[in-house]
Nucleic acid binder design. Sequence first.
DNA 1: CCGCATCCTACGGGATACTG
DNA 2: CAGTATCCCGTAGGATGCGG
Lengths: 114, 114
Amino acid sequence: MQIEPDLCRVEDALGILVGKWKPIILLHLLNKGTTRFNELKRIVPGVTQRMLTKQLRELEDEDIIVRVVYPQVPPKVEYSISEYGKSLEPILMAMHEWGAAHTLHKMQLTKKKD
Amino acid sequence: MQIEPDLCRVEDALGILVGKWKPIILLHLLNKGTTRFNELKRIVPGVTQRMLTKQLRELEDEDIIVRVVYPQVPPKVEYSISEYGKSLEPILMAMHEWGAAHTLHKMQLTKKKD
DNA sequence: CCGCATCCTACGGGATACTG
DNA sequence: CAGTATCCCGTAGGATGCGG
């Protein structure tokens, strides 16, 4: 296994996932499917409209999510995971499992600092 | 599956992996085992001493890598993956596989922008 | 050989207000 | 409802130099 090509690939995936609200957005879209903007805003805890829009745009630019605008008043915009985006699920799951398995270890670490 | 607890866990893993040089450092230590500071510096392309030290310290603080100092002149410091750190391998591998599988997709995206 | 101290910059993230 | 437009701040990352 060569190092440098691997680095690039790992960083590509990382680059897409990194962003304060991206994991929760993706997790929600993966679990619950198509979601409207305001519903996402309610679900993502404490996010501002500006930030939510920004994160969604970035994911859309990467072709991870799909944005559908219904030309009506009041506006309606729906977001969903793209086929491409679905391929990220194993990574998200690997992280989820890791986090679940190591919650204990983390608690032990914080304990040391007392 | 609940959303919010999952978020935390995903972000914990993400938090550890994020850092400009962390993936390549971890990949190297996972593949090649124990490595001296200067060797890492040669291997990680374009990293400065300050940044390499910083990233290594952060990984050490998270208990992902182990730092061994040999009290001699000139100094010798060796870094290796901890047992805990090894548990990150599935995540790194998931990202690697994803990146490898989607190199094509990425090339098609850049093509669109022409 | 390994690392710290200092100083600097760019950018991710945020608060707030306005609009089709 | 679903966004932009401004202004602001902290911190990750970097350049450079000294020191045990």
